[in-house]
Simulated scan of single mutants.
Amino acid sequence: MSGPARPFPPGDSGGRPALTFRLGALQVAAPILGGLLAGTALANVLLVVTAGEYMTSGELRSCLSAVVIASLVVPALPSRYGVELTHNWLVVLGNRRREIAWRDIIGLEIRKTAGIRAVIVVVADGRRILLRAPMSLLDRRFDHKAQILTDWWVAGRGGPYGG
């Protein structure tokens, strides 16, 4: 899939984000809900192995209630993970804000872990930074977003040869 011929919007001064990729509500909730369900199952198995008995219906109801509450609350929370594309910077959003100049990025890689693809940014100083967004989990447009990110990187470096 080819990206836009001119990835920077006209008149972009480079200071404000022109494009932002964030995780969707289901992309945030799915791993958490899966973990809670797996934790409930594991707790039940450990209880059987160590004590020889299953969870009581009250204990199981408490665990499943936590899963239901989390399934309602987590998707409503705003996603703080993502990336912003500006004329001069790739801004990584997460626990903290990290700005990486396009010229300092020497490569972008797509990594697949447990069937989920994500973008890794390779920086000139040797760091490899995993971007939390975009990611392929529940996102059919991942390939398109990865191509846009690549186009911005090429344009931000000054062309296909880093000019």
Rank of each mutant, 00 (worst) to 15 (best):
residue 104 D to Q: 14
residue 74 V to G: 06
residue 93 L to D: 08
residue 101 A to Y: 04
residue 73 V to M: 07
residue 152 W to V: 02
residue 82 G to P: 15
residue 48 V to I: 14
residue 160 P to Y: 10
residue 123 V to Q: 15
residue 111 R to I: 03
residue 29 A to E: 07
residue 103 R to D: 08
residue 91 V to E: 12
residue 37 L to D: 00
residue 3 G to K: 07
residue 98 R to I: 12
residue 17 P to T: 11
residue 26 L to G: 08
residue 18 A to T: 09
residue 124 A to P: 02
residue 72 L to P: 00
residue 150 T to H: 13
residue 58 G to H: 07
residue 103 R to K: 14
residue 54 Y to V: 04
residue 41 A to K: 01
residue 81 Y to I: 02
residue 160 P to S: 08
residue 131 L to K: 09
residue 70 A to H: 08
residue 55 M to V: 08
residue 161 Y to I: 00
residue 113 T to S: 09
residue 1 M to A: 07
residue 160 P to I: 09
residue 2 S to F: 12
residue 148 I to H: 07
residue 137 L to P: 05
residue 59 E to W: 13
residue 114 A to M: 13
residue 22 R to M: 01
residue 121 V to D: 03
residue 26 L to Y: 01
residue 66 A to K: 00
residue 79 S to I: 08
residue 83 V to Q: 07
residue 137 L to V: 04
residue 70 A to S: 15
residue 5 A to P: 06
residue 87 H to A: 05
residue 99 E to H: 14
residue 4 P to N: 12
residue 67 V to F: 11
residue 156 G to C: 08
residue 126 G to D: 08
residue 79 S to N: 15
residue 65 S to P: 00
residue 77 L to V: 10
residue 43 A to C: 08
residue 35 G to P: 08
residue 87 H to N: 03
residue 89 W to R: 09
residue 118 A to E: 02
residue 100 I to F: 04
residue 138 L to F: 14
residue 37 L to H: 00
residue 142 F to I: 03
residue 132 R to Q: 15
residue 133 A to H: 05
residue 70 A to T: 11
residue 29 A to Q: 00
residue 79 S to R: 14
residue 65 S to W: 13
residue 109 E to N: 13
residue 161 Y to E: 11
residue 162 G to P: 11
residue 87 H to Q: 05
residue 161 Y to K: 10
residue 133 A to T: 05
residue 89 W to I: 02
residue 74 V to L: 01
residue 46 L to M: 14
residue 126 G to T: 06
residue 41 A to S: 10
residue 66 A to Y: 05
residue 107 G to Y: 05
residue 137 L to Q: 09
residue 81 Y to Q: 13
residue 162 G to N: 10
residue 161 Y to C: 04
residue 96 R to H: 06
residue 161 Y to G: 02
residue 132 R to P: 10
residue 149 L to Y: 10
residue 126 G to L: 01
residue 98 R to V: 11
residue 119 V to K: 10
residue 129 I to H: 12
residue 48 V to S: 07
residue 35 G to R: 06
residue 74 V to E: 08
residue 57 S to D: 05
residue 142 F to G: 09
residue 64 L to K: 03
residue 142 F to E: 09
residue 78 P to C: 05
residue 13 S to D: 04
residue 11 G to L: 02
residue 145 K to N: 08
residue 159 G to A: 10
residue 144 H to D: 15
residue 124 A to M: 08
residue 34 G to H: 07
residue 108 L to W: 05
residue 109 E to S: 11
residue 6 R to G: 03
residue 36 L to E: 06
residue 89 W to T: 06
residue 52 G to N: 05
residue 31 P to T: 11
residue 136 S to W: 09
residue 4 P to H: 14
residue 62 S to G: 11
residue 98 R to Y: 06
residue 129 I to Q: 10
residue 95 N to H: 04
residue 11 G to E: 05
residue 85 L to E: 00
residue 113 T to E: 13
residue 22 R to I: 03
residue 66 A to I: 12
residue 32 I to A: 15
residue 63 C to Q: 12
residue 76 A to H: 02
residue 47 L to P: 02
residue 69 I to V: 15
residue 2 S to V: 11
residue 109 E to T: 09
residue 138 L to Y: 14
residue 10 P to I: 06
residue 68 V to W: 13
residue 55 M to G: 02
residue 154 V to T: 15
residue 87 H to V: 03
residue 8 F to S: 01
residue 20 T to R: 15
residue 68 V to M: 12
residue 8 F to H: 03
residue 18 A to H: 10
residue 4 P to V: 09
residue 61 R to V: 10
